[in-house]
Design a protein around this nucleic acid. Structure first.
Lengths: 193, 193
DNA sequence: CGCGACGTTGATTTGCCTCAACGATTGTGG
DNA sequence: CCACAATCGTTGAGGCAAATCAACGTCGCG
């Protein structure tokens, strides 16, 4: 249950097993069924969620009720609305499961305490946040300068097997194109390979 | 010299003057002339920079040498390549001044020490990072679902007087449109007002 | 003064969207 | 267990927003 997390931590920081075990006591396992919400418009994001199995998506709804996915979370990713979580204020987006998933939840209080008490954990969380930031900026650059096809290729690189796990129209939403366009893009790509 | 920073801090966290004064000793003032680099492709981002006066931009270069601005920083903003800074590794983007500017620099070591020693500062930095994150996500949503005209209006809201300070083609780069298109967008907008 | 930087405008092209229709697959209630 | 509906992906036709290509006016500066 904790192996994926332990691996991710070791990839990023040097943490003793003791420190890890301490953090472990603050994590609450939770299962989410396909289509179940982790966070819903108007909620306060009360926990960070580490995805140890499955797949989640984070999205907003526009004024005509259309969903815009700005992030997927698969095994090894943390999911939360950072703004809502750190400020403990209402969110205006949603997180739900695209597959039956297994999560490890850390409450705001646990997170604050752990960050203050254990520097390695604090450092780990900071690293995660920095990486999110980097990912977001990369994605912005993509929108500024890349075509839909390039963005799709970048998506494939970032989430290697996700294109086989989630429906095309969800990926299209993430890429900011219509399902029809993505379908045509795929066709083009298979043609040239 | 420190007033802008002090104001920004009070806006975000409760900090005693003592804590602030301690942090102040770790800040190094620096002036940047128009067109001068703060950070250049290949550098390691060694400092956080608080803009107390002036205007900076952060951008990358694509394979055909075109600049893509993904962020401006004006009075009251922090500038850095977060990824390069937190991991102390090479950056692949650039930060330079669009106007003569005044900065307050905090080195990586000072930042680490200060964060460990003074929780209010740590909290302040975390807040900044969370906000960056939020801003980035908002911008991604914009690209996914808003037209160029809407993005321009959002830009105006985010950086109220910047459109009078920086050339149109820089703003176009930020918005991910050509200068020609932005020129036409502006024309349309003045027509309807 | 002359040149480069910047903004504007026009003509044309193009990438992606919208609208529409139609198979294939999945799921579900009778 | 089958029938029908809903979900999902694909394809075609037509349209539009923004890109590209090109030319030109203005301003500020070396």
């Amino acid at each position: 249950m904790f192996e994926t997390l332990w691996k991710d931590i070791l990839n990023r920081v040097k943490m003793s097993e003791e420190d890890f075990d301490f953090g472990k006591t603050l994590l609450i396992p939770k299962k989410l069924r396909k289509r179940q919400y982790l966070l819903q418009n108007g909620d306060v994001c009360k926990t960070l969620a580490f995805v140890s199995k499955g797949c989640l998506r984070q999205y907003s709804l526009d004024d005509v009720g259309k969903e815009h996915i700005f992030r997927f979370g698969i095994e090894g990713w943390w999911m939360a609305d950072v703004e809502s979580f750190t400020k403990q204020k209402q969110t205006n987006n949603n997180i739900d499961a695209l597959e039956d998933s297994e999560l490890l939840l850390m409450s705001f209080k646990s997170w604050t305490d752990l960050s203050l008490k254990v520097p390695t954990w604090e450092f780990y969380f900071r690293e995660i946040l920095a990486e999110e930031n980097h990912a977001a900026i990369t994605r912005i650059s993509d929108f500024v300068s890349a075509s839909a096809e390039e963005r799709y290729l970048h998506f494939l690189a970032l989430y290697p097997d996700l294109f086989q796990r989630v429906p095309l129209y969800q990926i299209a939403s993430y890429l900011g194109v219509t399902p029809q366009s993505l379908s045509r893009i795929r066709k083009e790509l298979t043609k040239h390979s």
